[in-house]
Design a protein around this nucleic acid. Structure first.
Length: 470
RNA sequence: GGCGACGUAGCCAAGUGGUAAGGCAGGGGUCUGCAAAACCCUGAUCGCCGGUUCGAAUCCGGCCGUCGCCUCCA
């Protein structure tokens, strides 16, 4: 039973072998912080959080680094538009993104490097590239000489001739070749800049990640991840820079997630077809987003719609339902043994699915089978340590996917405040039911339902829970 | 135009050679004062055409369609 994963670099599924026994170094490209993040960014963060959690579950010690691009054209433009300081703007959206990561139940990274805190390392790297002729300066800017790398294009499967044959991009006159890209951009008036051997300027987009990787994880890493829209040019250029700098393979496995789509198109800031993380979490739970993403494969596109998120909400509730307490007293017998068997097969089935390039959809099917077994056992009156163990297995495996399976009521302050009033209404209704005043009792139930409070009458009394809108 | 991915029941989706997991929705039942939850039963020959094979959703070729990247992008 070994993990195999799809490597974009080889376009094949490969057995996972780490550079260092028992340890995984992984780097995931983070966002450019110039606006509110949307659930497409969340998807990427969630996918790599799942991968990280599964690796840890398999016993690896994972060092996880993800960055913030906090100096960039778009940040500068946005700051100029709003009259803000670009650094403050970037800081604001960085802080906000970190809060989102926490709200989405994403485990904290071991470090979150930023471009602005790596400037001296970046300058040193560019100097080194210049010394070995991989870089050349023109009018205060420095470009990477793509033609000097024979294997340029190996990640995106682009031939250099194709990349070299376009027309020149405006504003980058003086480049030797169209495909050459900026390592250092000379500053224009009013732009944030740092002193360098080439004059005032700032880093180009790609060099930051190479340098941060090198600095925080080393010359060669195990996993480099990001959205598949970063394959070209960003990751291709990272490889070119890093390998030219160190002479060693940059990353062993390249993992790319598919795009979240809204109305048939990739969700993106530039198209404007987006749902921000803020507005999503205002309406739905973090678990629901994970369920939507994990119902398919991480490399495939995911369609976001009212219908797809609604189905995800309801299937999340189903998983959660498996954690409802036992009601009976049967601790041994046929039902108990049956539950144990399903628990074990769910656990092994889950691992087999996850080992197969993180097949979360198949892994989830084993969780649903476990839920059904738990529900059946509960209905048969099963209780005691084996019932607990089955629920622990469900919690454990769901936890590997980063699903918390907690009720809204556990964390929502509004619900906690309403709890005494809801309990009071429920107890009044219980008296009404004892007197068989069904019409009034139903009125209370319907009234609460209108506020998302779902009542359930069981043999042991009435329970209630907050129903997530679907 | 170049490179790549995908097309499985009403919807989402797993499954890479031996006659199709799972979830949502729907229908029928059990339980319930009625609901809710739960449980049971219920649906597809896998975009189209052709080929390889004893046998293909799974391999090959062609066609149609959708999506992504081709220097803003998770």
């Amino acid at each position: 039973m070994t993990l195999s994963l799809y490597n974009t670099l080889t376009r094949r599924r490969e057995p996972f072998e780490t550079l260092e026994e028992g340890r995984v170094r992984m780097y995931v490209c983070g966002p450019t912080v110039y606006a509110d993040a949307h659930i497409g960014h969340a998807m990427s963060a969630i996918v790599f959080d799942m991968i990280r959690r599964y690796l840890e579950y398999q016993g690896y010690e994972v060092t996880y680094v993800t960055n913030f691009t906090d100096v960039d054209d778009k940040i500068i433009i946005r700051a100029q538009e709003t009259g803000q300081d670009p650094f403050e703007l970037a800081q604001y959206f960085t802080d906000k993104y970190l809060r989102h990561l926490s709200d989405l139940n994403i485990k904290p990274a071991d470090s979150y490097p930023r471009v602005t805190s790596e400037i001296s390392n970046i300058i040193r790297a560019i100097e080194e590239l210049g010394e070995t002729d991989y870089a050349y300066a023109v009018d205060g800017s420095v470009y990477f000489r793509v033609g000097r790398n024979d294997d340029y294009g190996k990640l995106s499967r682009r031939r250099q001739e194709d990349a070299l044959s376009g027309t020149r991009v405006e504003g980058e006159e003086g480049k030797e070749n169209y495909a050459d890209f900026a390592l250092w951009k000379g500053a224009k008036m009013g732009e944030p800049s740092w002193e360098s051997p080439w004059g005032a300027g700032r880093p180009g987009w790609h060099i930051e990640c190479s340098v941060m990787c090198l600095h925080h994880l080393g010359e060669s890493i195990d996993i480099h991840g990001g959205g598949n829209d970063l394959i070209f040019p960003h990751h291709e250029n990272e490889i070119a820079q890093s390998e030219s700098l160190t002479g060693k393979p940059f990353a062993r496995y390249w993992i790319h997630n598919g795009m979240l789509q809204l109305s048939g198109e990739k969700m993106s800031k530039s198209i404007g077809n987006l749902v921000t993380i803020d507005s999503f979490l205002h309406q739905y739970s973090a678990d629901a987003l994970r369920m939507l993403i994990f119902s398919g494969h991480y490399r495939k596109p995911v369609s976001y719609s009212d219908e797809s998120i609604g189905a995800a909400v309801r299937s999340t509730a189903r998983l959660r339902g498996g954690l409802r307490p036992a009601t009976g007293t049967v601790a041994v017998g046929e039902e108990v043994n049956g539950l144990r068997e399903v628990s074990e097969s769910a656990r092994s089935g889950f691992r087999i699915a996850m080992d197969d390039d993180f097949n979360t959809s198949s892994a989830l099917s084993h969780l649903f089978e476990l839920v059904r077994a738990i529900n059946t056992a509960r209905a048969a009156g099963v209780s005691g340590p084996f019932f607990q163990a089955a629920q622990d297995t469900l919690r454990e495996l769901a936890g590997v996917l980063g699903l918390s399976l907690t009720e809204t009521a556990d964390s929502d302050g509004d619900v906690l405040a309403a709890k005494p009033f809801i309990d009071l209404l429920v107890s009044v209704r219980t008296e009404l039911r004892q007197k068989k005043e069904w019409a009034m009792a139903d009125k209370v139930r319907e009234g609460l339902a209108a506020h998302s409070v779902q009542l359930e009458d069981t043999a042991n009394g009435t329970t209630w829970r907050i129903e997530e809108a679907a």
